[in-house]
Design a protein around this nucleic acid. Structure first.
Lengths: 220, 220
DNA sequence: GAGGTTCCTGAACCCATGCTGAACATCACT
DNA sequence: AGTGATGTTCAGCATGGGTTCAGGAACCTC
């Protein structure tokens, strides 16, 4: 079992390394975001323990990078205690689990166990579905015919979520919660408005409406 | 997706039920350990949300009972905040995941999603009986010849219930209660109307009428 | 086969939901 | 402060789907 530990605090590392090794993991260690990201890109780890507060590159970005590139290895995120929005952010970014600091080593081991027991999930996806692709760096959509449209921030988040769940029905509440953070209520018709704006850019028929249910990105 | 919620606090239940239903789960609820255990023993749930502090029988015992009897359905455990030993106990007893109270509903849904995705890999949620299959994500029927028809919300719920009970006679009252929530009386001829609409989509003869008794999905 | 009951069917109704265009508010940047 | 871009709210319109109704067909009982 190969494990990547991305953590900058030397004290933490000193505490964790022996415990992880004793638990039977072959541990690699990176002390900053960039190093961690590179290791995660290239080495076949069974699981990653990722701190969020990292020098050089935030943990969340590292995680998003992996997910955006289809890297679907199990990631356990370490967050500050009680920062529940961080945890939700982490889960949204594709974390499989989180643990609030400070934590007990025993608990970390238990959770790693649970994670590695899991079968590998479905293959990672590129954010491209049937000729509709999202340029995540440029924040643009590219259509089949090469046409590209720039997206505003909200449009981008909405489309990204749709593309991550092609063919699935997504309720307005779900969309609301993913486009904005936390418990946003679909008070106004915000989602409708943005769906409309997206449709203008990617084509009316690519997003179906399911009355009373939500919306669905059409997959051909 | 059938979900069993074992939780005694009425306020929690009131908050969770609608959210879970909105997320597409068919939710059964038990208010104590013994009831929950029995339901879990007998019904084919896709996932269980289990509170640990339960009257009549502690959640951990319920979980251990299931695991000891080879019941391997995914279980998410709700624990008191910061009771980390409880969480470790839970994991040792065979929980697949846990969540500390108080938690955010969105977080619960995210974790349930992860759990159910893992448990039913690529199986694609479909209910199928003799060449008649219901695409639960897409809310569509697919016939033997590949023909597909989109379903409205009510049609969908009705057909799903029929498919879950193929070959059984289902009275209009039963259908009413499952298509709508609970105590609805079959005042008008609503069910008749919907049966008709369904027949139009899946074929006249797939649903038999049993005069005075109800309807039955024909199984060949 | 008369009479009653149950079910079928097509159509009409009506309302919640969704769509749309535009105004208004807010933010970032200069 | 001014400007342009983005985010949010609003009001009116369109429409889909849930519901009701009425007339006819099928079925059962006597």
């Amino acid at each position: 079992m190969r494990l990547l530990l991305v953590e900058d605090d030397p004290a933490q590392v000193a505490a964790l390394l022996p415990a992880l090794k004793a638990a039977g993991f072959a541990v690699d260690h990176a002390a900053d975001g960039i190093g961690g990201e590179q290791l995660g890109d290239t080495e076949p780890y069974d699981v990653v323990v990722l701190d969020l507060g990292l020098p050089r590159r935030p943990g969340l970005e590292v995680l998003r990078h992996w997910r955006a590139h289809g890297r679907d290895l199990p990631v356990l995120v370490l967050t500050a205690r009680d920062a529940w929005h961080e945890r939700v952010d982490g889960l949204k970014a594709g974390a499989d689990d989180y643990l609030g600091k400070p934590f007990h080593v025993e608990e970390l081991l238990a959770r790693l166990n649970a994670l590695t027991r899991r079968a590998a999930p479905a293959a990672g996806r590129t954010l491209a579905v049937d000729g509709l692709s999202l340029d995540e760096d440029g924040q643009r959509v590219v259509l089949e015919d090469g046409q590209t449209h720039p997206l505003t921030g909200t449009e981008f988040r909405l489309l990204r979520y749709l593309l991550r769940n092609p063919g699935r029905i997504l309720s307005k509440t779900q969309l609301m919660e993913h486009v904005y953070d936390l418990d946003a209520e679909p008070s106004g018709n915000l989602i409708e408005v943005y769906i409309r704006r997206l449709r203008e850019k990617i084509g009316r028929e690519r997003i179906e409406t399911l009355r009373g249910q939500g919306y669905r990105l059409r997959r051909r």
